[in-house]
Amino acid sequence: MEKIYLDYNASTPLAPEVVDAMQPLLTDFYGNPSALHWAGSPVKELLQNAREQVANLIGSSSREVIFTSGGSEANNLALKGFYFKNRHKGNHIITSKIEHPAIMNPCKFLEQIGAKVTYVGVDRYGRVLPEEIEKAITKETILISIMHSNNETGTLQPIKEIGKITKRHGIVFHTDASQSAGKVTIDVNELKVDLLTIAGHKLYAPKGIGALFIRDGIELEPLIHGAGHEFGIRAGTENTLLAVGLGKACEIAKQHETNQRLKELTSYFWSQLKDEFGEQVVLNGHPELRLPNTLNVSFVRKIGQDLLLAIPNLAASTGSACHAGSIELSPVLKEMGVSEDVGMGAIRFSLGRYTTKDEINQVIFGLKKII
């Protein structure tokens, strides 16, 4: 088998158009975007254009987008920044039990300094129930953070429904859309979110760049203090090279919002697995309400890691790629009530823009040989 990459949820290769967009900044555009002279002005324009491209992908104004070093920083800024600025209004945060560590760990940190955090559970498909969110709200609740889609199973969360609840109660709402942006249509106004996280390396942009949407009127305490960069919210000379890369990636993603080809390819993969392995293979997550590229399946009474080790040319993931290396049952699958003999055999296949049908057929053949 040739080398096959089916771990696009962990990281994506740079799109050629992104590389082309960044190239001039390696040589010609080296000025500081804050400088008012001939070297700074064109760089400032490139930065503003990138900001507009990101805003266009999520339906916001460019004034509401700030660049960060990635999804983790954006999440930390959303949670800690909001809490530090608004804790005089209340100290209660609501999130879910299946969030990425970039949400879970900031919440645990905030608990150490006085925050009260409620972690709501999920149903067997890994979906948060909006009524559980509403039940958890107290007079002290100031922030709710629920991921847009789960990075392991791809299950989409009922963000729009939760957004209506948060608006009714006057509570600020954050969603981590790191895994969703560029794969499904996102509109911050339709979703009624106030804060939204984007990670560049999940949508064919470089690592080390992300963005946080901050709705007008929402106040955050900066985590990095210094000069007034990024509307005074994140100090430090802007990384225009990577911002331009993210902007271009968002522009391309906007053109391919339906992702129909990916959806069909993922469906084909699942139908082939079912035909080949029958009851030996189980789908984890929602059968329909999930990312078009994500297929989390369990090979019953097998260990997912062992299967992947037996096919060294296949890049896929057991559980979340951000904290792999253990054969313990994934916390996400555990929260979904997946039994151990099923959950231990879980593999997340995440397809991408460059995945082919021939590659899928090769993977099926490889699995067939070892199972």
Rank of each mutant, 00 (worst) to 15 (best):
V282M: 12
S339N: 02
Y204L: 15
K3E: 08
G285M: 05
E99P: 00
E251D: 08
Q48E: 15
G366H: 11
G226F: 15
K160C: 09
M147G: 13
I58G: 00
P292E: 01
Q272D: 05
R261W: 06
K368G: 13
L307W: 07
L220Q: 02
M147V: 14
G154E: 04
E111C: 09
L289T: 06
S350I: 05
S178V: 02
A102M: 10
Y268C: 05
A321H: 10
H88F: 11
G245A: 05
I233Y: 07
R353Q: 12
D176I: 02
N49F: 01
E190Y: 01
I162V: 10
M344F: 08
P222W: 00
G228I: 04
G90D: 03
K369R: 10
H174C: 12
A78E: 09
I327E: 07
T318C: 15
I171Y: 03
I327M: 03
L25H: 14
V122P: 08
T294I: 01
I137C: 10
E140V: 12
D341E: 15
P130D: 04
E257N: 05
T12R: 08
A205K: 05
N313G: 15
L329R: 01
G208C: 11
L26K: 14
L295E: 04
G31C: 03
G154R: 05
N151I: 09
G31N: 05
I103A: 09
L79T: 01
A235E: 06
L129E: 14
L314E: 01
T141V: 13
A15D: 15
H100Q: 03
G208P: 10
H229F: 10
Q362D: 11
L46E: 06
L241Q: 08
N259C: 14
L333F: 07
L79W: 01
L196P: 09
G31F: 08
V128R: 03
V332G: 06
P42D: 14
G121F: 11
T68F: 11
A235V: 01
T166S: 13
N150T: 06
F277E: 06
A136W: 02
L265M: 15
I198Y: 06
E328C: 10
K135C: 08
